[in-house]
Design a protein around this nucleic acid. Structure first.
Length: 552
RNA sequence: GCGUGAGUAGCUCAGCAGGAUAGAGCGUCCCUCUCCUAAAGGGAAGGUCGCGGGUUCGAAUCCCGCCUCGCGCACCA
């Protein structure tokens, strides 16, 4: 019996009590689903719920009176062994050992599908993340979104959604021109332009461009810069793709901003906007009346020099996504872009789109720390720590895990020295080790002749088994919540809880008998639980894009 | 100034869809491998949940105010 099943059964009991006239509750006050929690203290049973407390007010009854009515019905639920009323009106539920233990077999039989469901089936989601400018390698901030974004995509997919991972490639505009000028300056042995880029990678890209186009410096200024731009951006972008691939993140679509301008999408969009009445002409520029949609000021869409402002491309881009049939466009941005949310939604609304279809997830910054002091990362100064640097030092698994186990609302500080030195203490190893351990137990069980020919759930009666089963049972809900709240870190945190429960069980309960002890159904049944744990850990690590090694 | 995110153990952070005695990892101090992986487990120490009000049976969690820190507030992208 999983907490979900228990919750559903309690809900049903609640409705029966209402139908039977034992409780009088306004329809809108009946909780849609009853929250079932694992109590902190063992004495409080296997599961607890505070519905009775919540229903006290709407029913006009004392909390304990509500609890008593519900307790009588809950006790009849199949698999419930005992129901106690405690404190102000908590319902503490003890589940029948066999009912709880049945989960072990169910998980093994579900295999990689355990934790998946089809609650988001039919929804087409465009998830855009990273989208770093191709003017340099992906730095730590982008690395964070690569880890979190890809995990979120996996989590959505686990809920049955159809997800397109998309990278918006800003290959149009000033930044790119600066990048090209920086390459050209480097090729001529000049210092980087004032507003250009100066990292070591510039010289490296420059060399590669020269190798591809040896005659490039013979061209006139404008042509040379154009070739450096075209070839340089391609090289940079290839590097970015490779870094991402090595990071176990592969995008379905790399969308080029430039294409929106070349194929006339931006111009077409501007014409549509002008007709929509959401644009007005002022001071030589065309403004979007974004204040009508909650922005704090109106935004220029066509500059007085006649060029489209950046936002024009973004609105056209959203329109493009919409045309490709997505029901939901999620964009992940760093906190340094959060001021952009309102105008983006305003732009879409101006085109008649439902702003609810655009969701912008803002993630806080990642800072580089050295010797306890923050180090400013600057692309110009070349002091960036890149995705490649991080992976080289700690590996993909540790890098991805350590970036995705935090809430995106938190700023995170990365101290490369600490991360490297303490890599063995990274929680990822704790979780991976638990998985490897389940495999080791498997190997030993097989060698000793313990097989899965018997399963008697009632034998999983040790306190550590009850705890482990409970945490395994919570996994699907955790994944569903991670999808609902767009918070992949919930999965990582729960895996840590499962790993801890498993390690404690391992210490308390043997699968393979020692010495001359006979093999019994206890051993065989425990093997199922061991395998179930390995399966859940593997499923969870997969959602994070982290490997689940068989040996460590 | 306005907007926005954060402030919880020595450190890094969970918990924030209100619930019982506030958690984990790391660090510190004890203890546990002749027996399935000790990258583990058990125990100890460590807290005015930034501050002050409010809401209610109950607040780290919700509301208001204040303080501190990050980020943003272009006809740049």
């Amino acid at each position: 019996m999983t907490p979900e099943e228990l919750s559903a059964a309690i809900s049903a009991s609640l409705h029966q009590a209402v139908d039977a006239g034992e409780l009088t509750v306004p329809a809108d006050k009946v909780p849609a689903n009853v929250r079932v929690e694992r109590p902190k203290s063992r004495e409080h049973g296997d599961w607890a719920t505070s519905v009775a407390l919540q229903l006290a007010k709407p029913t006009g009854l004392a909390p304990r009176a509500v609890a008593e009515i519900l307790a009588a019905r809950l006790a009849k639920i199949d698999g419930v062994a005992k129901v106690d009323i405690a404190g102000p009106g908590f319902l503490n539920i003890t589940v029948d050992t066999a009912a709880a233990g049945a989960l072990a077999k169910a998980i093994v039989e579900a295999g990689s599908t355990f934790g998946r469901n089809d609650s988001m089936a039919g929804s087409k989601i465009n998830l855009e993340f990273v989208s770093a400018n191709p003017t340099g390698p992906i730095h730590l901030g982008g690395t964070r979104w690569a880890a979190v974004g890809d995990s979120l995509a996996r989590i959505f997919q686990a809920q049955g959604a159809e997800v397109t991972r998309e990278y918006y490639f800003n290959d149009h505009g000033n930044q790119i021109d600066r990048f090209a000028r920086s390459l050209l300056a480097s090729a001529r042995g000049e210092a980087a332009p004032e507003d250009g880029y100066g990292g070591d990678y510039i010289a490296e890209i420059k060399d590669r461009v020269l190798a591809i186009e040896p005659g490039i410096l013979e061209l006139d200024e404008e042509q040379a810069q154009e070739r450096f731009r075209a070839v340089g951006v391609d090289l940079m972008f290839a590097d970015i793709k490779k870094s991402l691939h090595d990071f176990n993140v592969d995008f379905d679509v790399y969308f080029h901003e430039d294409s929106l301008h070349k194929d006339g999408a931006v111009n077409g969009l501007l014409e549509r906007l002008k007709k929509s009445g959401h644009l007005y002409f002022h001071d030589g520029a065309w403004w979007l009346k974004s204040t009508d949609f909650g922005d704090d000021k109106d935004r220029v869409v066509i500059k007085s020099d006649g060029n489209a402002a950046y936002i024009a491309g973004d609105i056209a881009y959203f329109s493009n996504k919409r045309d490709r049939g997505f029901d939901l466009s999620i964009t992940m941005l760093g906190a340094d872009h959060h001021g952009y949310v309102a105008r983006l939604k305003a732009g879409a609304a101006g085109l008649g789109h439902d702003p609810a279809m655009i969701e912008v997830l803002i993630g806080q910054m990642v800072n580089l720390v050295k010797d306890g002091k923050p180090v400013r990362m600057s692309k110009r100064a070349g002091t960036v720590v890149t995705m490649e640097d991080l992976v080289d030092q700690v590996g993909t698994d540790a890098a991805r895990y350590s970036l995705s186990r935090f809430s995106s609302d938190s700023n995170i500080d990365i101290d490369l020295d600490v991360l490297t030195k303490k890599s063995n203490e990274n929680p990822v190893f704790y979780v991976q080790y638990a998985h490897a351990r389940t495999k080791a137990v498997d190997r030993n069980a097989e060698a000793a002749g313990v097989d899965r020919s018997a399963f008697d759930a009632s034998l999983l009666s040790h306190a550590t088994e009850s705890e482990l089963l409970a945490q395994l049972g919570a996994f699907p809900t955790v994944v569903a919540d991670a999808a609902k709240f767009r918070e992949p870190h919930r999965v990582a945190r729960h895996l840590e809880v499962i790993a801890g429960s498993y390690h404690r069980w391992y210490d308390a309960c043997r699968v393979t008998p020692q010495g001359e002890e006979p093999i019994t159904d206890v051993n065989r049944t425990r093997l199922w639980l061991n395998d179930a744990t390995g399966q859940v850990l593997a499923n969870g690590l997969d959602l994070l894009g982290v490997s689940a090694p068989d040996r460590m």
